[in-house]
Every structure is written in C-alpha cells, then in structure tokens.
Amino acid sequence: MGGYGDVQMIDEDGKRVDGRGPGDLRPIEIEVGVVPVADGSASIRWGANYAIATVYGPMEAHPRKISRQERAVLDVRYNMAPFSTTDRMRPGFNRRSREISKVTSDALESVVQLELYPRSKIRVEIEVLCAEAGTRCVGLTAASVALADAGIPMTDMVVSVASGKINGVVVCDLNKEEDNYGEADLPMGVLPNTGDLVFLQMDGDLSPEEFQQAWDYNVNAAQAVHEIMVAALADRYGGGE
C-alpha cells in the first residue's frame, strides 16, 4: 500500500475521481456461456477489468496421484494474460498468481459439493485479459458463475468484492488510480444467501471504525453483484418467472 496522502482522490462533495460515491461499485457486466468448448464459462467486465472463467469436468483426475477416494479435487488456476497490464506480464510461474489460485480454490471448495464426485477432478480456469484493480475478486466472482453454468452442485455462489481506504476515506471497490494511492485493501468472498465468508484478505491500515465501514460496504456490494450474476444466468437460460 502506497499511502501518498497529499494526492486528492476525493472532492469536497465526497465524489471519487470517476464520479462514484464512497459505497458505489464500478459498472459490472457478466455474460454466461462465452467459451463454446467449455462445460461452463462466463466473462465479466468490471470497470476496465475483463476476465474469463471456464470450467471443465468433472473429469478423470490426472495425474492419478492427485485424485481423492472420497471427493473430487478442485483444480483452480488464476492467471493474468501477458497483455493484461500496462507493463507486459511475463508468462509462466508467478508467486502472486499461485497464491491467488490457492485462496480462490479454498473459497470455492467451501461451497462446491465435491463429495458427489469421488476420484474425479473439476478444473476452473480464470484468465484476466485486462486488469484494472481487484482482479482476484473479479476472477472469483466469474468462477462462481462459470461453475453454476457448468451445472456443478454448490450450496451457494461466492461473490467477491473489495473495499479500501484512500485519503483517509473508506471506499468500496477501488479502481486503478485509487488503488495506486490506496492505504488499505480488504477483499472478501461472501455467500450472498447467508452472509457467511469464505475468502478474506487484508493489508494496509484501518482503524476499528474504518474496518467496520469497509466490511459493511463489502457485504452490501456483494448483494448487488449477486443480482447481476443471477440476471446473467437467467439471461442465458431463460428467465426467472
């Protein structure tokens, strides 16, 4: 976290650089079934972020040694395409991507009913094609929609959002400029039907009050994002009522 306190990111009316209020999300668009060869897929545009998630399986677990007798293994990969960032991202092994893949997998394992598919594997691929800030949340959200699209049984869909602090003000869903000057970042994975959490990270500096505010922003924003996820699925599979 940078913490360049002298750059003004919020005006006198409390509006942010892109005109949002402190609790507002960036525009979000989700499309289901964008990868014809996959069992399930979704693309998501979230601000300038653009990510695609695909799901393959349940399928035979290869290599055999990773397979589990009592449940399926969830094989999650988060990756940023080389052209997704301002400076080119070198393809290949990357500690950051590995960590995000792992926490994403941990979050999804909390809802996917893996016990229904012993000895098999479910592959989840998250590819960030354009990164703006908050890609781990964007990727996790897209993966949930792709899993639902693939018909994978789950007890809920994970919705992921982040809030943070700029110029001492707590705001929801930091964009790239804000992220550069951010003083804290609190990404969460929320189960919209229960309010339970399956993913939580934080870095920076927040007072107890600020922390509570950021937490509340995330919980509220998760409901709004969930509505967009449901609408995207209904759009693909024919309406609600």
């Binding site: 060869v37 393959y56 990969r77 080389p82 691929e125 590819e127």
Partner: peptide, 16 residues
C-alpha cells in the same frame, strides 16, 4: 509468443 493455456480446451494441461 503463443499461449495455449488450459482455459481453451478440455485436452489442455497446465505446465510449461
């Protein structure tokens, strides 16, 4: 460079 990552098909496997 061309990347054929596992996102693009069932038959792709992760790796170098």
């Amino acid at each position: 460079s061309a990347e054929l990552r596992p996102v693009a098909g069932r038959h792709y496997e992760p790796g170098p």
